[in-house]
Design a protein around this nucleic acid. Structure first.
Lengths: 235, 235
DNA sequence: CAGGTTCTGTAATGTAAGTTACAGTACGCC
DNA sequence: GGCGTACTGTAACTTACATTACAGAACCTG
C-alpha cells in the first residue's frame, strides 16, 4: 500500500500478460524467436501440471521452473508475473481441452446417437485433467473476468451448440418434438452430468468405470428421449 | 521445516479446530464461557463474509478481526490457525445453508409438486451466498477431505433423499414409473440446475429473474415428468 | 473488592515466496 | 568470426502475512 510501484498491473515496464517479449500480434507460436517458443512451451506445460494438480496458490514459480528446466528469469521475461503465467496457461489450455466432443459420425438414431455423445461427454468431463481445469476456473474466474469468457465460450458454446444442432435435425425429421433445441441440449448435458460431476468436483476420488458411465448415460438418454418423444405427451 | 513446532497440527497445546477453549463436547454456543461465544460468532461472521467474497488465500487474518472487532490474539486463541478458522466457518455455514429445501406441504400432484421443489432448489442455488459457498468448497475441498464429507452429506444427501422419497410416493401411487428413485431424484435436480448453475459458478453475474427460474424449472419438470410418465414409453 | 481469567491492541518475529539484478553463457545474424 | 540479443543460475531483495509475545484493561467469581 505504501509503495505504488509494487502493483504489477501499474508497472509500465512489465507489459503484464498479453505479449511475451516482442510486441508481436497474436501470432501462433512460431514467430517467438525460436528458443523462446520452446521455453515457453516447457514452462506452460510444467505450470499446467502443477497448477491443475495443486491449485494456483500452492505452487511457486520456482517449482515451475524446477520442473520445466530453464530459469526463473526466463519465466518472468516471458510472462511478467505469476498471474500472467497462470492466465497464459489457462488460455492455452482451453484450446486443447474439451475439443474431442464432436457430433460427427454419430448414429442418426437419436437414442444411439445421444448415447454415444453422452458417453463421450461424461467420460471427458470426469477425466482428472478436465476436472482440475473446471476447479481452477471456478476458483479463479470470479476474480479474472476474462477467463470466464474463455471458459464459457469454450464449454458452454460449442458443445451445447453441436448437440443443439443434432437435436434440431432430429426434430426436423419428426423423431423428437423439440421447440427450443438449445435449451434442450443444455438439459441433456445437465442430465448426463447428473450428480457425478458435482461429486467429482467436490473432490471425491470416485473411480468411475466405463460401465457406470454407460449406465448413467443410458438412463439419462432414456429420460430425455421419452421426455421429448413425439406424440408421447398428452399434456 | 527447521522448526518442528511450526506445524500447527502437531502442536499439542493448540487443540486445532474442534473445541475452542474448554474441552467441552459438541454443545451449542451457550457453554462457551459467554464472551467467547460472542467473539466467536463475530469472527466467524466476518470471516464468512470475507472468505466467501474474496476466497481463502486473498483474505488475511488481520482483515477478519478488523471487520469483526476484537483482536488477532483472540482469533488465534479460538481457532488456532487460519485454516482452523476457515474450517470452522465452513462447518458452521453448512448448518445454515441449503436447509430450507424441504418437501413438506408440497402439492401431491407430481407436476405441481416438482415445480415447487425445483423452484425452491434453483432459487436457493443461485443465491450469491450459496454460489460463493459452492465455489469455496470446490476450490478447497480437494485439499481438505473432511470438508468434502461435510459438503456431500449436506448437499448430496438430504435434498436428493427428500426428492427421492417424494418420487417414490408418486411411483407407489402409480403416477410415475420410477424404478430407482434416488437416481431419478439426482436426474431431476441435475435437470433443474441445467446450464444456469454452471454459468453462475463460473462467475457470470447473470441476474436471473424469478420468471426465468420458473420458465427453466417448468421446462425441466416437463421433460422429467414425460420421461418418467407411466405408460408413456413404448420402449 | 481482591484475584484470577479472558479479551484487547500493538508490536515483534519468522518465513515463505514473488520479483529483480547480475554475471556468465549460447545462439542467430551479417 | 565477431556482435548483440536472449537464456541460465544464483543470490539477493522485499514484502506480505501467519503466528506469537506481552502488557494492560475488562470481566466475572467469591
Amino acid at each position: 500500500m505504501t509503495d505504488p510501484t509494487a502493483d504489477p498491473t501499474a508497472d509500465p515496464t512489465a507489459d503484464p500478460i498479453s505479449e511475451p517479449i516482442h510486441g508481436c500480434p497474436p501470432c501462433a507460436s512460431e514467430r517467438l524467436s525460436d528458443r523462446a517458443s520452446a521455453r515457453r512451451q516447457a514452462i506452460v506445460a510444467a505450470g499446467r501440471e502443477l497448477f491443475l494438480e495443486r491449485g494456483y496458490a500452492a505452487v511457486t514459480c520456482a517449482e515451475v521452473v524446477a520442473r520445466s528446466g530453464g530459469s526463473l528469469a526466463t519465466l518472468y521475461a516471458l510472462f511478467g508475473t505469476k498471474r500472467g503465467l497462470f492466465e497464459a496457461i489457462l488460455r492455452d489450455h482451453s484450446e486443447s481441452v474439451m475439443r474431442p466432443l464432436c457430433v460427427e459420425g454419430v448414429s442418426s438414431d437419436p437414442e444411439l446417437g445421444l448415447l454415444a455423445v453422452g458417453q463421450r461427454y461424461l467420460t471427458g468431463l470426469l477425466e482428472p485433467t478436465v476436472v482440475a481445469w473446471w476447479r481452477a476456473i471456478i476458483a479463479e474466474a470470479p476474480h479474472t473476468p476474462e477467463l470466464r469468457e474463455v471458459f464459457l465460450s469454450e464449454e458452454g458454446g460449442p458443445i451445447q451448440q453441436a448437440v443443439a444442432e443434432y437435436l434440431a435435425e432430429k426434430a426436423a425429421a419428426g423423431e423428437l418434438e423439440i421447440a427450443e433445441p438449445v435449451r434442450a441440449a443444455g438439459q441433456f448435458l445437465a442430465l448426463v452430468r447428473g450428480h457425478l460431476h458435482q461429486r467429482v468436483l467436490a473432490g471425491e476420488n470416485l473411480a468411475v468405470t466405463p460401465d457406470e458411465i454407460e449406465s448413467e448415460v443410458r438412463s439419462a438418454v432414456h429420460v430425455f428421449i421419452h421426455g421429448y418423444r413425439s406424440r408421447a405427451a398428452g399434456s
